[in-house]
Nucleic acid binder design. Sequence first.
DNA 1: CGGCCATTTGATAGTCATCAACTACCGTGG
DNA 2: CCACGGTAGTTGATGACTATCAAATGGCCG
Lengths: 271, 271
Amino acid sequence: MPSPKVAMPDHGAPACSLCLFHAVCGVAEMGSMPAPAGARLHPERLTVRIGDPVFRQGRPALTVYPLRAGSAKQVYESPLGWRQVTGFAMPGDVLGLEPHEAPQYSTAAVALQDSVVCAVPVESLRELMAAPAFRVAALEVMRRNAERERVLLVAVGSMKAPQRLAMLLLDLAGEQARRHGRQDGTLTLAMPRTDIASLLGLTLETVSRLLSRFASVGLIAVRQRRLRIIDPAGLASIYADLEAGAQRPAREGDQGAEFASGMRMCREAAT
Amino acid sequence: MPSPKVAMPDHGAPACSLCLFHAVCGVAEMGSMPAPAGARLHPERLTVRIGDPVFRQGRPALTVYPLRAGSAKQVYESPLGWRQVTGFAMPGDVLGLEPHEAPQYSTAAVALQDSVVCAVPVESLRELMAAPAFRVAALEVMRRNAERERVLLVAVGSMKAPQRLAMLLLDLAGEQARRHGRQDGTLTLAMPRTDIASLLGLTLETVSRLLSRFASVGLIAVRQRRLRIIDPAGLASIYADLEAGAQRPAREGDQGAEFASGMRMCREAAT
DNA sequence: CGGCCATTTGATAGTCATCAACTACCGTGG
DNA sequence: CCACGGTAGTTGATGACTATCAAATGGCCG
């Protein structure tokens, strides 16, 4: 143990209860109740320090890593050397879960703070996949991941900066709520502005400015990494605002005109 | 047959030889040689007319459709109604091949011209997947698709317009070459400018202007849908140009500085 | 031949990247 | 405990890039 001081993640969270492997894990929520009957999994736990990779892109994908505590980002590096954050992971998410039995990790996963992951060998995973119930759940997770990535593509490809950011905030808040039950809109941005910017295809300055702007119109309150959503509906209207946001590319489900204020509101506050 | 006049795709191409199912298909390349021993597939062939969907997003994914002739685009519509083209398919590609055994098509596939597809039921597919050789090939295709989408995300998220377009052109030319063997850089853009724009997260005007610009510097020759790449290296340098292109987001494999001319060249020609 | 759509081209403005200080925060070491 | 240095974040000024608006042109089908 060479590390003198490891700031542990503040989320003293019930990560395991949302874990894909929860039902079959013998380690989960130790103390709360005895290992459920039929538990077959006793994954090793690993501590990853801030900035360290859980795994690197291109390395043999031999293990999947449910995130137990902390948070991580997924980073993709294109053949030409472009890097981009493709997603953030929170406790309960599974890192390294590659679709199509990919032999290599398609992205890297980097800890955004000191974090704890479990290490599940792919062989174990494969065995588990034999069980229909688990299989369905696992596939559902992968499908959601794919969907997420596609939504991101559309966002980056055809929405304006404020919309993209609003989208992210709402998403993060949703995830946080799903995990902690807190409905007060409080959330901690574990990632630096740079990473948010990368994910959204913006610059950190733009992200910073937008956060300030959102705050100045009373949509949110921010102080560094601490953020509280004050007006979720307002954010949603910015996110959804069809008229104002488009970068033109086709879109036609012209429902959703019920909103429409947020964007303007926010744009005008830019004095 | 209600259709009076169906312009058949000009590509009188050897589509089948590149098809994923080629080895196990009894219909492939009929005439050239007798169906190979062990062929188990006799897929129905369907004709799809320009603008018609091969399948729609969200519908039960019961069939995969190898594209036999013609071309198609994949269109994703986000929950909020944003549409974006996520890829183009050429003969030999397989439409509707969903990863993770998705129960529904995650995108729509729309014919860009009158096209012919084969219809392979997923059950057949599942059976075939039992054979290791086929399985590997199929997974490889899916993996390539995923990779493609990720590259697109990075492109849209952090490259400038000229780079994105150069990328697309090189990609299309590569595909065309792989199929037809033509190395002369000639290619037919089956898709309208709008679709290119959507894919790349741009507007059709920008695409049009860029094509003109590329042409004016002698990189390509365009006339409507007919395009010829004159200077592949030049395009590649625009695509790869790290210094000029970045939208800043982190990137550090600073190799590739060998190029660097193309971007400037093209920028200056913009008088 | 006329109408319609795709594409090109031009003019203009908006958004957002870029450059440049400046400030706040955090861990370190005195 | 407090000064220090470095990183993360904010804010401002400026301009590049590209969306947007507006015609004009060209091609294709009926």
